[in-house]
């Protein structure tokens, strides 16, 4: 459902992504691994439309989306969870969840679904369902965004993306800077989403989290993908793990 083909992205004159190609299939969890500065976040920002690639194509559900504004990408059914979580500080938890929420199958998404044929309907995300998955958010419903802890912010950020009823969830280092217990909780939630058939593009630095979730992995270095393979491939490849992941 998501295809990147020979994507080159720049910050000003600096050539960051140097020909990145990979795909995310329906219902699949794909992970981008690599050190700081490898180009993982840049890849995600290119998918989301924050950065327009200078060459190469980005396709989502068969349509070219490179050059679209972020809001147009989001409205095609992509849920975005950025690295800094991006909680709106002056909105309450509830407002954060509802402010941009969408019903499943809104116009643009429906168009996409029609193109690729009927997909297995997933249960729609509502406030009640989100609160059931993240009871902590229910307790803090009336708190303002800036009053949350890091873990709560991460949960809210994921929950907020789910409220868009996306077909593809894009997460940038959801485990970063969180206590192990919270990471476990988030991994459990993400695994549940995976079992439900939601496609996920995940950026991770933590190999254990990546192996626990993803079907396929791409290891990046200096703006290029140097290794692609399944979890088993990655676990066996000591060379890649040592050289690019410092394990």
């Amino acid at each position: 459902m998501l295809e990147l083909d020979a994507v080159h992205s720049y910050y000003g004159d600096s050539h960051i992504l140097q020909g990145v190609s990979f795909t995310v299939q329906e219902g699949e969890v794909v992970c981008l691994l690599g050190r700081n500065g490898a180009g993982k976040t840049t890849t995600i920002l290119t998918v989301m439309g924050y950065i327009t690639p200078r060459s190469g194509t980005v396709r989502y559900q068969g349509q070219a989306i490179a050059g679209l504004a972020p809001y147009q990408v989001a409205r095609r059914g992509v849920g975005f969870v950025p690295q800094e979580r991006g909680i709106f500080p002056s909105l309450t938890v509830r407002e954060n969840l509802t402010v941009f929420s969408r019903q499943p199958g809104s116009a643009l998404q429906a168009a996409g679904q029609a193109v690729k044929g009927a997909s297995a309907p997933r249960a729609p995300w509502t406030l009640e369902r989100v609160y059931k998955v993240f009871p902590r958010l229910h307790e803090r419903e009336r708190n303002l965004g800036f009053q949350l802890s890091g873990g709560e912010q991460q949960m809210l950020s994921i929950a907020r993306a789910l409220m868009l009823n996306p077909d593809l969830l894009v997460l940038d280092e959801p485990s970063e800077g969180l206590a192990p217990m919270i990471v476990n909780e988030i991994v459990t939630v993400l695994r549940g989403l995976k079992n439900e058939g939601l496609a996920i593009l995940l950026v991770e630095q933590n190999l254990h989290t990546a192996l626990a979730l993803a079907d396929r992995h791409h290891v990046m270095n200096k703006g290029e993908i140097l290794f692609s393979g399944t979890s088993q491939d990655l676990e066996r490849n000591e060379d890649v793990k040592r050289r690019y992941l410092a394990v």
């Binding site: 975005f80 991006g86 709106f88 002056s90 909105l91 407002e95 402010v99």
Partner: peptide, 13 residues
């Protein structure tokens, strides 16, 4: 939300 962080708001549609 836009006042808080217009880029994030854009990423949510």
């Amino acid at each position: 939300a836009g006042v808080d962080d217009s880029q994030m708001a854009a990423g949510l549609g």
